[in-house]
């Protein structure tokens, strides 16, 4: 009996230890980013780093201003929002409110498949097909630009926004809709005035996570955005988002040098931005569940 219990205890102990691995990795990532990123601030002031307008890491003397990269990331991601928010939420509403059982059985897997297409394929598509198309259509010197990256990122983030928004919509109780129909509202009125407000915070979680996904996306923007570290003045200017700078330059940056540490510092900033978005989404979705009387 006691041997039995000992064995049970040991097994439980093993599972407990293994379960902490995910925590360990997250802490490990944070630790590494701080350890390798902070040394850059010995040579460069934080304010010069964050607000410097020039990113010339290989010049002599080098300049480490990441403002163009941060602006690039936000610019491209905001552009993506114009694609993925209407399309993602529109699709989610269609699937939840209009689709027949059969349509749902086809549409949901298709959207999941769109989500499973690797980012390198999106990047390749943007570079080989979308960019030349834009170049011709808008008669611009080069197709690899903010617009190109925004469109493809938006397409990529659409399934994310759609599935999350669809989840949120499916949590709205039937009784809400029935009550609205009972007082004579049309389906559209019910949708706009009852269903969407009820699922509102769930939908905003979907949008936030879509944004977080777009900012963190690497290969697509690396290939599609054109790569110039400038603060863009139009949607046809090329940009170099933070992820693209890290991916493109880390291979050449000498280990332990300023450039190496600067790239880690960018990754740290990137991590903190996405971390903030994820926590925000977590808090909002928890409130949403409490509001609709679902368990946390």
């Amino acid at each position: 009996m006691s041997l039995f219990r000992l064995k049970e205890k040991i097994i439980q102990g093993v599972f407990t230890v293994l379960a902490f691995s995910s925590l360990l990795f997250l802490v490990g990532i944070i630790f590494v980013l701080f350890k390798e990123g902070l040394p850059i601030f010995k040579d460069v002031k934080i304010s010069d780093f964050l607000f410097g307008r020039f990113w010339y890491p290989t010049y002599e003397p080098p300049e480490f201003g990441v403002l163009p990269l941060i602006v690039g990331s936000f610019y491209v991601s905001l552009g993506a929002m114009f694609v993925c928010v209407p399309l993602g939420i529109g699709s989610a509403l269609y699937i939840n409110e209009m689709a027949s059982y059969k349509q749902k059985a086809i549409l949901k897997p298709l959207i999941e498949i769109l989500a499973s297409v690797p980012s390198i394929i999106y990047g390749f598509f943007a570079m080989a097909i979308l960019a030349p198309f834009l170049q011709k259509t808008f008669n611009i010197p080069i197709g690899l630009c903010t617009l190109n990256a925004s469109i493809i990122l938006g397409v990529m983030a659409t399934p994310t926004v759609c599935s999350l928004a669809e989840d949120a919509l499916s949590y709205v109780p039937r009784s809400f809709r029935e009550a609205s129909f009972a007082v004579g509202a049309t389906r559209w009125q019910t949708l706009i005035k009852v269903v969407i407000p009820a699922a509102g915070s769930g939908i905003s979680t979907a949008v936030i996570l879509g944004m977080s996904r777009a900012i963190g996306e690497t290969m697509t923007v690396l290939m599609a955005a054109g790569g110039a570290a400038i603060i863009p003045t139009s949607i046809f200017d090329p940009v170099r988002p933070m992820t693209a700078a890290i991916a493109a330059e880390m291979g050449e940056a000498p280990v332990g040098g300023d450039h190496y540490h600067a790239l880690f510092a960018i990754a740290l900033a990137l991590f903190l931005i996405t971390f903030f978005f994820n926590i925000l989404a977590e808090i909002i979705s928890r409130r949403f569940r409490i509001k609709l009387g679902l368990s946390g």
Binding site: I29, V32, L33, G216, I246, L263, A267, F271, T274, I279
Partner: peptide, 25 residues
């Protein structure tokens, strides 16, 4: 809760950051 939260956040970490972690570690 801490483990759940860390799993959720690990899922949201940009893929290039995993590359940097792999490089350093």
């Amino acid at each position: 809760n801490i483990i759940r939260l860390s799993i959720n956040n690990l899922a949201g970490v940009p893929s290039v950051v995993f590359g940097l972690f792999g490089l350093a570690v």
